[in-house]
């Protein structure tokens, strides 16, 4: 395998491994946020298989982290659609998903994640991707623009709309929770 990717100007397998060690954890978390119903560990492996096979392209990338995020976003979108289709035709049961978050996470953080994930499910894909990368992963705008192959201004426009969508979805979820729990609306976050 090492010889297979040792092309001129390409990263070596050990260099790609360095990226795996450096960014693997955050990429796996991003994959879980982008495609919650797909196993993020499996997606992460697939992502780095692509990285090994395209080691020459990765070597030329201005930002290797942005390149990896770009592939991660495409993989998550593709696998999410495929998984949904397979489940629709009864070809696949919902798969088990690996833990991607640190065990130190609190119950409050877990509840917030659950609510945000439910809200994000109703946000259009293009906006959701920008929202996840900026708000949850903390990527700067320039890297998001490189990762998604879109102009920086488009990143901000999508982020603006995504924030509105998420706020509205969270508001809806809180209203539903208030109705079903018997609490007053003000007693339920957000």
């Amino acid at each position: 395998m090492t010889t297979a990717i040792a092309r001129a100007g390409a990263l070596t397998a050990s260099e790609v491994r360095g990226l795996y060690v450096a960014h693997g954890a955050e990429l796996r978390q991003a994959l879980a946020r982008l495609a919650p119903d797909v196993d993020a560990e499996d997606l992460l492996q697939e992502l780095f298989v692509v990285a090994l096979r395209k080691a020459d392209v990765l070597a030329r990338a201005d930002s290797r982290r942005a390149w990896l995020y770009g592939v991660a976003v495409k993989l998550a979108a593709t696998r999410r659609r495929t998984a949904r289709l397979r489940r629709f035709f009864g070809l696949e049961e919902a798969s088990e998903v690996s833990a991607v978050d640190a065990p130190s996470r609190t119950a409050e953080q877990r509840d917030a994640q659950r609510l945000v994930a439910r809200a994000l499910a109703s946000v259009p894909e293009a906006r959701r991707e920008v929202f996840v990368l900026f708000e949850l992963q903390g990527l700067p705008g320039e890297e998001i623009a490189i990762a998604l192959g879109i102009p920086l201004k488009t990143v901000w426009t999508r982020l603006f709309h995504a924030r509105k969508d998420v706020a509205a979805a969270l508001e809806r979820l809180a209203a539903i929770e208030a109705r079903t729990s018997g609490l007053k609306r003000e007693e339920v976050r957000p």
């Binding site: 978390q29 996470r105 953080q109 917030a112 994930a117 949850l136 706020a167 957000p190």
Partner: peptide
């Protein structure tokens, strides 16, 4: 409140990668 919730969700650290999984 929505922004606070998102910030809370974003604050969850990622689980460390198992180097052997390479």
């Amino acid at each position: 409140e929505a922004a606070k919730l998102v910030a809370l969700a974003a604050s969850v650290p990622a689980k460390a990668i198992d180097r052997a999984s390479w």
